[in-house]
Amino acid sequence: MTTIVLAIVIGFAFGFVLDRVGASNPSVIGRMLNLTNLNLAKSILLAIGVGSVLMFAGQMLGLVDVGHMSVKAAYVGVFLGGLLLGAGWALAGFCPGTAVVALGAGRRDAVFYVAGGLLGAAAYMVTYPAWKASGLLDDIAGGKVTLGTVPGSKFDGLTGLPGDILGIVLGLGFIALAFALPERIVHRPAGQPQPAE
């Protein structure tokens, strides 16, 4: 039962904050991806960095259970799926999580996105045996690996570098990148004026 309470509390917080950083708004996603407003990218980089530093520092201090880590496998399909996801992300302006939040925020386009998403997931469920047979789901570079070797972790390291220290260094790197990234890279002409909403 405790885990269900945690699911409600953390899920609620995640949905709330995603809306507050603007991620549930497809215009904000589109402006990030066409490089005209990178504030959301800065938020995401900072979040990854903060999460990484806290998690690995917590592990080193013995405050965070290393067993809570869950590393996904690396295989060619990760890259191919990433390409597909990226194209759809740019077209719709939603990723799966932000669409769920947008649904709660009353966006009608999110309803269509989620319906399309359920159909897309079902299409994958049906075509999964063909992907499996193609070998594109087979592990590469050790499969479920972290970049360094995290002490006490059940996941192997791609390198023998100390994974917790590497995690903190990379986390600080993400934070530095968040600050270094300009707010805008590309300028575009203004679109047609829109009626007030």
């Binding site: 295989y75 191919l80 077209l91 719709a92 799966p96 399309g116 994958y124």
Partner: peptide, 26 residues
């Protein structure tokens, strides 16, 4: 229509990849 097609492509891709922006990227 764009949202529906985008949703289809994103979730098909996310399942092929084994995760999405939340699980894989962040």
């Amino acid at each position: 229509a764009a949202a529906f097609v985008g949703g289809f492509v994103v979730l098909y891709g996310a399942r092929l990849a084994g995760g999405c922006t939340s699980g894989h990227m962040m």
